[in-house]
Design a binder for these strands. Structure first.
Length: 692
RNA sequence: GGUGGGGUAGCUCAGUUGGUGAGAGCGGCGGAUUCAUAACCCGCAGGUCGGGGGUUCAAAUCCCCCCCCCACCA
């Protein structure tokens, strides 16, 4: 046991959606770091929670006719299930909607009040009179106010065609995306934190070089803080609006009835609340973890939420007298095959979908082999994923056990570790270096080191060829010595890899009947212990499995994969044709009058007062859009359409409908109701291309 | 538009403070081997280090300009 006491957090997943493989980058990265620290003997606690508050949850609950509590309870269950399946080992998984969090929010708020950091200001905001709530920018759409643009159906903060930024109140003919109503401007009193009072503290903390990656510190200086020593001088930090008027799903501010803490105020406090729950359960003292110089606090987050964790959060902690983060570790996003994850391409893979097709350790290893200390995005190149897992893990590391264990299965390792030419000692001597790489979150470099050790071990067994010696009964002891060496080298590797591959470490422990409990297990060879029967520890993965996962993700709610029990794949009956006989012959000239185009669904929302309609915004690329009402409500959920490519009639005469102007139609097959099947297009097509 | 970060072999990426002939893994090609999940071992990569200019005895590595990609902009 060392002296270090470490509290680790991963960002709180929002309770409005399932965990996907992009989220998993962070949870796997953090879990590896935590397992590493625990293996080193450092007292380490890993807490997380669901982030549950805010408008999105409130609206979702309203749409689904449930309470917010029901929505978040269901999602918490799904999150926990996915995390467990990926071997993410939280010491406590809480919720921001907990009594502990409410209490801590109140205490921190009190400190901020007492420090005279809170001011009140009236602000004007659009209000949806039908839905009865104030609208965040993203819930308003209207015509771009730029007279040279006037693009219709633009979001409330900036125009997707001309790029102009504006306030939602400036939009021409604004509409609420919640109800379709025309919002009105209303004034409400908001509470703000005067962050500028903390400017010098934030300069010092963020620029010290101790707590943030240099890119992050530079970014904060350039974008928010400025440099007091430069010609431009320091920048003024704006006041942070931390209240929202009712109705809002969250905690009501005790000394400001009718106002609620903005979700980003209570979310990071959720780290503390989750710790509190853990403390109450284990008898630990909360202050030992959040008010002690002897505890290091490490946050792991994605680069998108840098600003909340590196300005507001330290400011809140400082003001309320809690420990500041020792380090905020920030990582980049996941791309798949070099591109953003995409639902239409099937690369938006949910954690649960991944688990239906592949083992969690494969992804854990792959991410580890790609993650460095920086905040660049990492790429899940699917071909590389298969190759790397098979070649590194199965062919190289696991293979060591596979090619040596069976010669000694049922027997024991040598009572005295034989002369191996210094291999074991050399690997043991790498322990500190590899530990430092883990410590710095440079997992890819650590994996490289381990791989090199595996190469050396493979060379060793190749040179000594126990399979040849084995044919000579007089060399049995020599064979046993060689295998004792190789199995010990294998065990070393599994110790080094235990943070990444806990399952492999278990299997290694079982094979050699000796648990791996500490990083220093790499330093002492096992002698005289029994060797169990060898069992395969890991299967090679195939392109087919990966393709199946992608296919499964492309249409994630249709087509159960266990329904193909027929002999012939084609059993097409005459019913469809009979129901809708062929039309009379037409000429090519007739056909080309209809301008069919590939289009991308860039917005999709329900039309609540219509039985069948969804309101889609289609992009033909380059800012050209079509507003379309499609009778597919029974067959598709709006969120499942977002981003996918469809075929639309782009030159259809616009038609005024009760709910708005329909400027085209999308092509689909099927009799109707739930049996509607949108036309798609093979990979490679892009919006705007004509169908010939 | 502003701020920050990137553009290095087919692919994914390393390249400390400028200095031995620019590297690794994967893929590919050739050979060897057969203990091992067609695994392992040996050999093979002439890539304008995004483009141009500059500083220097010497630059992927420093400075300037341009192009492209990403994130953030409360």
């Amino acid at each position: 046991m060392t002296d270090r006491r470490i509290l680790v957090t991963a960002a709180l997943p929002y309770a409005n959606g399932q965990i996907h493989i992009g989220h998993m980058v962070e949870y796997i990265q953090t879990d590896i770091w935590v397992r590493f620290q625990k293996l080193r003997g450092n007292r380490t606690v890993f807490v997380c929670a669901d982030d549950t508050h805010g408008t999105a949850i409130m609206i979702r609950a309203r749409d689904e006719g449930r309470t917010e509590e029901e929505v978040i309870a269901e999602m918490a269950q799904a999150h926990v299930r996915d995390f467990e399946a990926f071997d993410i080992e939280f010491d406590n998984y809480g919720s921001t909607n907990s009594p502990e969090n409410r209490e801590l929010c109140g205490a921190i708020w009190k400190s901020i009040r007492e420090a005279s950091l809170v001011i009140e200001k009236d602000i004007e905001q659009l209000f949806d009179p039908e839905a009865g709530l104030f609208l965040a920018d993203r819930f308003v759409r209207g015509t771009c106010p730029n007279p040279e643009c006037n693009a219709p159906n633009q979001p409330g903060d900036n125009c997707s065609r001309c790029g102009k930024t504006y306030s939602p109140a400036e939009l021409i003919d604004p509409k609420s995306t919640l109800s379709g109503a025309t919002p009105e401007v209303r004034t409400a009193r908001h509470l703000f934190i005067e962050l500028k009072q903390l400017h010098s503290f934030l300069d010092e903390w963020s620029q010290s070089g101790m707590h943030l990656q240099s890119e992050v510190a530079n970014n904060l200086r350039g974008q928010f803080l400025g440099d007091p020593n430069s010609a431009e001088g320091a920048k003024e930090l704006r006041d942070w609006d931390i209240s929202r008027p009712a109705p809002y799903f969250g905690f009501e501010i005790p000394d400001s009835p009718g106002n609620y803490w903005y979700v980003w105020f209570d979310a990071p406090i959720g780290y503390m609340a989750s710790t509190k729950q853990w403390c109450d359960r284990t008898g630990e003292k909360f202050d030992d973890w959040w008010k002690s110089d002897n505890t290091e606090i490490h946050h792991f987050i994605g680069k998108d939420i840098t600003y909340f964790h590196t300005l507001f959060w330290p400011g809140m902690l400082k003001t309320a007298g809690f420990s500041l983060p020792e380090k905020v570790h920030i990582h980049g996003f996941l791309k798949v095959d070099g591109e953003k994850m995409s639902k239409s391409q099937g690369t938006f893979v949910m954690a649960s979908t991944y688990l239906k097709h592949l083992e969690p350790d494969c992804l854990r290893y792959f991410y580890a082999s790609k993650l460095g200390p920086g905040l660049g995005d990492i790429d899940l190149n699917l071909e590389e994923f298969v190759n790397r897992v098979n070649s590194h893990l199965v062919g190289n590391i696991v293979n060591l056990a596979s090619r040596s264990a069976k010669f000694v299965s049922g027997g024991t390792l040598c009572e005295k570790y034989p002369d191996d030419g210094g291999l074991f000692a050399a690997a043991a001597a790498k322990a500190d270096q590899i530990a430092e790489l883990y410590e710095q979150c440079d997992f890819s470099a650590a994996m490289l080191e381990v791989l090199q050790l595996a190469d050396e071990a493979n060379r060793f067994i190749n040179d000594r060829a126990p399979w040849t010696l084995r044919k000579d009964p007089e060399k049995a002891e020599e064979v046993r010595q060689i295998c004792s060496i190789v199995l010990n080298l294998f065990r070393q590797l599994t110790v080094f890899l235990k943070p990444v591959l806990p399952t492999l470490a278990e299997q290694s422990s079982a094979l050699l009947n000796s648990p791996i409990t500490n990083w220093n297990d790499v330093k002492t060879p096992l002698v005289g212990t029994p060797v169990s029967d060898f069992k395969h520890m890991m299967q090679r993965i195939t392109n087919e499995q990966v393709e199946a996962m992608i296919d499964d993700s492309r249409v994630d709610d249709a087509a159960e994969d266990d329904s193909d029990d027929s002999d012939s794949p084609w059993k097409d009956g005459p019913e469809a044709l009979a129901a809708e006989p062929l039309s009379e012959e037409c000429t090519i000239d007739d056909f080309v009058k209809v301008d069919l185009r590939v289009a991308r669904v860039i917005a999709a929302k329900d039309v609540p007062e219509a039985n069948k309609l969804l309101n889609l915004t289609l992009s033909l690329g380059g800012g050209e859009t079509r507003n379309v009402f499609a009778g597919i409500k029974a067959a598709y959920k709006p969120e499942d359409l977002l981003g996918r490519l469809v075929i639309c009639v782009a030159n259809l005469k616009p038609r005024q409908m009760k709910f708005g102007l329909s400027e085209g139609m999308i092509c689909a097959a099927g009799p109707g109701k739930a049996d509607v099947f949108l036309l798609g297009v093979d990979d490679g097509a892009v919006p705007g291309q004509r169908i010939h």
